[in-house]
């Protein structure tokens, strides 16, 4: 079990969110969509230019830019 940054996750990799460091509007937007500690996410894919990233959480698909993903730490196998 290691904690890595969401940006470093590979396609189809699954992990549990451990912390979300963003504050202010970005922090709020990220959390509103359910990116909070304890939730499981799976990387679904990346855009043709490798950014943004699409991930699966609570049964729906969410996209984030890489610089937004940087605020999110994930525990993976």
């Amino acid at each position: 079990m290691t904690v890595i940054n969401l940006r470093q996750m590979k396609r189809n990799q699954t992990g549990i969110i451990t912390s979300v460091k963003a504050q202010g509007e970005m922090g709020r937007r990220i959390r509103d969509m359910g990116i909070v500690p304890g939730k499981e996410i799976t990387i679904q894919g990346r855009a043709p230019l490798y950014d943004p990233v699409a991930l699966r959480i609570m049964g729906f698909t969410l996209t984030l830019r890489n610089n937004e993903a940087d605020y999110i730490q994930v525990e993976v196998e």
Binding site: E25, M26, R29, I30, D32, M33, P52, A54, F60, T61, L62, T63, L64, R65, E68
Partner: peptide
């Protein structure tokens, strides 16, 4: 101004 966060849902 800062870019508005992209955080967006890909609806089915």
């Amino acid at each position: 101004g800062e870019a508005t966060p992209f955080v967006m849902e890909l609806p089915p």
